[in-house]
Design a protein around this nucleic acid. Structure first.
Length: 420
RNA sequence: GUGGGUGUAGCUCAGUCGGUUAGAGCACCAGGUUGUGGCCCUGGUGGCCGGGGGUUCGAAUCCCCUCACUCACCCCA
């Protein structure tokens, strides 16, 4: 084998290998467990959709749609795209299958790969995995609080520490335009103080100036109008109720009026969970309310709220605190000679019938090398089987951890393993 | 798309004022006498030193180009 393999994963794509996969599994299992307790049910949607499913919902002018989608023309001449996020497809499915006719609210979760053609960096990949949830048809801040507290419970349950919740309200179609105008008015005579990116943002997406990291932009916006001071009465009430409910549910959070979300479809509540120790891409989960999207997809006027968790980022954080362990066989059967080797296979089969992980050594190689292998696998027990044992109907056993050893009758293996 | 950093064995890295067959540790495989692992000892597998071009008697080492990886910007989970 030489230095540069002939075939490699594409840029921004990665293989997820054991023992990492065990961590991924436990994250996924925990998500299913917690989300189920909140009444969320799994939905599976395709990774490939008509391009318009994404462009219309995420926003035609967003970077995601403009330059980050894997878009191509299929053999039928249709423009199709790999999903860059999960919500759009779930909403499409919700409308397509009239899921609003299910008892309200309808609550779903999904997980799987998303695709964005970006320059990879720490915590950012071209194929990345998200676990997300979407709750439909409940406009009340109670649902916002439920979803956010569920996310908190999930993160706690998975053992993630040192994360912080930030929430914000970005208003609705009533109050946001006025705020945008106020913001434009504020910055219009301060353009020369802004960084080049923010000068561009001034025209394209002025809200983005609020979360620019450049120090002179931070300075320039210190007296900028705050969205939370420009909310209409309904949005303001909604946001206040949400905060009260989160307090009631003992979710600790901070209001961050400068938090802006990138997707066009959000209304009112937005939230984000960040962690230090993730590098620059520090959001481990994010979401918000999107009250207009279902209608825009041709469905009934249905409010909704959801979030997505970045799996790689979450797993990355977990790996910092917990050490990964490989699972180990329950039993390694070392055999000496062909007859014993065959007997070992039959015994292993019986153990596997009981869902025990049994490994069988190579009966043609030395006992020493078989034991070495058993040790490397960290097998809890070794059974040794040779001609002597075949004659007497017994097995030698050995506990590799403490080197204790003894004999057990072949007919009593089950009892032996049950007793330990 | 823009900028910085790095490319030597499966992994972590030495080796760079250019000088013979490119090294270590770990990992892997096999031995250290008959059927007992870990520790130790011995041996082995494994590198066209990311790729291409140039300078030179001679390049892992110097120059140019290229590719890959990586971090940051942008954007976002």
């Amino acid at each position: 084998m030489s230095g540069t393999p002939q075939y490699k994963t594409l840029k921004g794509m990665q293989d997820i290998l054991p023992p990492d996969t065990f961590l991924w599994q436990s994250v996924e299992q925990t998500a299913r467990r917690i989300f189920s307790a909140f009444g969320f049910q799994e939905i599976r949607v395709p990774v490939l959709e008509a391009t318009s499913v994404f462009s219309r919902s995420i926003g035609e002018q967003t970077d995601i749609v403009e330059k980050e989608m894997y878009t191509f023309t299929d053999k039928g001449g249709r423009s199709v795209s790999l999903r860059p996020e999960g919500t759009a497809a779930v909403v499409r499915s919700y409308v397509e299958h009239n899921l609003h006719s299910l008892p309200s609210p309808q609550k779903f979760y999904y997980s799987g790969p998303m695709f964005r053609y970006e320059r990879p960096q720490s915590g950012r990949f071209r194929q990345f995995y998200q676990i997300g949830v979407e709750a439909f048809a409940d406009p009340h801040p109670r649902m916002d609080a439920e979803v956010i507290s569920m996310l908190g419970r999930f993160l706690t349950s998975i053992g993630l520490e040192g994360v912080s919740f930030q929430i914000n309200s970005i208003g609705c179609e009533q109050c946001r335009p006025a705020y945008k105008d106020a913001l434009l008015g504020f910055f219009s005579d301060k353009k020369e103080n802004l960084c080049p990116d923010c000068v561009r943002r001034f025209d394209q997406n002025p809200l983005r100036i609020l979360d620019c990291k450049v120090s002179r932009c931070i300075e320039a916006r210190s007296d900028a109008p705050r969205i939370t001071d420009h909310l209409c009465q309904d949005c303001r009430t909604h946001f206040e109720k949400l905060q009260n409910l989160l307090t009631l549910l003992e979710v600790s959070f901070a209001v961050n009026p400068e938090m802006v979300r990138g997707l066009d479809y959000y209304t009112r509540t937005t939230f984000e969970v960040t962690s230090q120790g993730l590098g620059s891409q520090n959001a481990v989960a994010a979401g918000g309310r999107y009250n207009r999207l279902v209608k825009e997809f041709g469905g009934p006027d249905t409010p909704a709220i959801g979030f997505a968790v970045g799996m790689e980022r979450m797993v990355g954080l977990l790996k910092q605190s917990a050490s990964l362990t490989w699972p180990a066989p329950a039993v390694f059967i070392a055999a000496l000679g062909e007859a014993a080797g065959n007997a070992a296979l039959r015994i292993a089969g019986k153990l596997r019938d009981q869902d025990l992980w049994a490994e069988v050594g190579d009966a043609e190689s030395s006992l020493k090398s078989q034991l070495r292998r058993a040790d490397r696998l960290a097998a809890r027990f070794v059974f040794i089987l040779g001609d002597e044992e075949l004659r007497s109907g017994t097995l030698k056993w050995k506990n590799l951890a403490d080197a204790s050893h003894g004999e057990v009758k072949m007919t009593e293996i089950k009892e032996f393993l049950a007793a330990i």
